[in-house]
Design a protein around this nucleic acid. Structure first.
Lengths: 362, 362
DNA sequence: ATGAAAGCGCTAACAT
DNA sequence: ATGTTAGCGCTTTCAT
């Protein structure tokens, strides 16, 4: 661990090139309005001295940081057993990098961290925030909103959508920007596929219902089942929690109450995995006796399952990219001279499509 | 996406409290040498105005950033199908947060990104770096070393350890600090367990051998097998790549050449998963006919495998914490008045122990 | 113990 | 087109 000596400043470059600081600054920041021979001399000096601008000094005057925070609020362990966030991060990172922005990662483990994050965001260290908050009762979105930082949410946030039955939730804050996948549409496609297979007793193992994704998938299931004769048997819906253990539990309960079930739509791949195991243990064959579909296309789980899982894929990385792009666009487009951000990002949500991936389980 | 108005400055707080800027600064930074009544007035003003220090201005004078970069160099997809980095990140984040440091995440996808990262690090935006680079031929560690930023590596880096047979690799750069798990010892424990079970034909499916972890695990396997009669049959070692598909391929090859194999130590859980499937397809029972052990204790893979996987667990999150702690300690301890870092972090590597987790597969 | 003042390195008016 | 200059908000001597 060695420390370099103090780095050259604009001043030093200016001296070396025999110009003023302002000229160097111009060249370094794009070089408009500097004649070529001079600009070249400056670039020379920059290269020779290995000059790198001091970001702190720059931010101090520009009030820009070229940095955005990624806030992941997840007290549960799910984040860390699921490549979901890793993929989102990759997408975000790629997009940010392409626009010379840095990614400041803020992980929160619970209530205590919320204050810290809110303070950081309110402190104006970053130009904007990308926020993941999966739980309906999470105060973080509100805190962040109050912090007044331009924000894009990952996954539909909960505000004011008590009416779970509507396609576009009522009371949605028009100023809130978010990116999500088409949970409801994906669920519909899955259940339709099952019904199309001729299955008549199609069950649903839900996700944790304090997350909008779980609610939306349940809604999608109901959309289709409402049109199927005998499809609204409430016993076919079992609440679970997105985990394999939860999937097992739910599947066992389901088998008890509805031994005649011939298809299962699980809220995610992990849940499907648990269901698969219980089905196997019960002597049922998949997909012959019971067809199973998951959600996420979480690799390697889906592909390595036995049998390989038919599932609804969401383009996770693309969601990340999109979030970053929306935020950056908002930042670039915004800000009139009073410092107020001009509305330029699309308000409301952007929903990415899902695709049904057919493998062996359904 | 709304923008707040400009935030209060030190000046404003000073005016409000009726003191000088210097006094406010003292209170904000710990408050030594300010008498209580006055200090309290300042704290009042800070609270009333909701003052948060401007980090850019502060960094400009202190030359500290209270931020460290986490560099993850991983062109492969492995990072994103494996909760490994997510867990490390969590550990790092916790430790950093506890010391009021921010985490700047730098993901690299290939050579192009290396220059960018090197520039960023050399640019003095962060106080130090935590670097993950899994591949032996990766130029990044070298670049980072040249950048002169205090650094702690995750996983033993490759420099000068061509002599794979020694416990402490010769030629190890004494200035390099890294944290790793005891890959070799863990491998030994796994293989010893297999041998203790009475297995005589114990095979090893290696990881990608351009990664030190794979090499070390192979070495551990060889350590034990060298003492077993007939243990150095080269056909029992099959090169693989840490993926399930690779595990399948390797296992098939192994079965062809050594149908009498009765135990397999896979370089990681994913590889074991592939092996498990091939074994099942070949009609062999696990563990009765062939015992299988993995490495990582990667959940949910290991626990949800069929049968649940006996494996070598490494404390991934703890490794992350430790890396951060070492870096921070080096930063805090270091720096005499000339700005040169005083050696205070332990040179060389810190190796965390592994534990064998017994489940059903061996 | 407190205040006054000098920058940290940079950008952005404003001159020329 | 280029140079001069005034800060950005903070910490840190140096006086008092």
């Amino acid at each position: 661990m060695t420390e370099g000596v103090s780095r050259p400043t604009l001043e030093a470059v200016a001296a070396r090139a025999g110009v003023s600081r302002a000229t160097v600054s111009r060249v370094v920041n794009g070089g408009d309005g500097v004649r070529e021979p001079l600009a070249e001399r400056v670039r020379q000096a920059v290269a020779e001295l290995g000059y790198v601008p001091n970001q702190a000094a720059r931010s101090l005057v520009t009030k820009r940081h070229d940095a955005v925070a990624v806030v992941i609020a997840e007290p549960e362990t799910r984040v860390f057993t699921d490549p979901f966030f890793a993929l989102q991060l990759r997408g975000i990172s790629k997009e940010l990098t392409a626009h010379d922005n840095q990614l400041v990662l803020l992980l929160t483990e619970g209530r205590d961290d919320h204050a810290r994050v809110a303070r950081y965001l309110a402190g104006g260290h970053v130009d904007g925030a990308l926020v993941f908050s999966l739980h309906l009762d999470d105060p973080l979105p509100g805190l962040i909103h109050d912090a007044g930082v331009p924000t894009v949410f990952g996954g539909r946030p909960h505000w004011g959508d008590q009416v779970a039955g509507s396609t576009r939730p009522t009371g949605e804050d028009p100023g809130v920007v978010y990116v999500d996948c088409d949970n409801r549409g994906g669920a519909r496609a899955a259940v339709r596929h099952l019904v199309g297979l001729g299955r008549t007793r199609v069950a649903h193992l839900t996700g944790a219902l304090d997350q909008t994704s779980a609610v939306d998938r349940l809604d999608g299931y109901r959309d289709v089942m409402a049109e199927v004769p005998g499809g609204n048997d409430p016993r076919l819906v079992v609440e679970s929690d997105f985990t394999p253990a939860g999937g097992e539990r739910a599947m066992r309960g389901l088998l008890d109450r509805c031994p005649d079930v011939d298809a299962v739509f699980a809220a995610n791949d992990l849940t499907a995995l648990g269901a698969l195991r219980v089905l196997r243990a019960s002597g049922r064959r998949v997909p012959e006796d019971v067809a199973v579909i998951g959600f996420d296309d979480m690799l390697p789980v889906a592909m390595e399952a036995d049998p390989p899982l038919t599932t609804v894929r969401q383009e996770i990385e693309e969601m990340g990219r999109l979030m970053a792009r929306l935020l950056l666009r908002g930042l670039a487009g915004g800000r009139d001279r009073t410092g107020t951000t001009v509305a330029s990002a699309p308000a409301g949500g952007v929903i990415l499509p899902t695709t049904l991936i057919r493998r062996a389980s359904a």
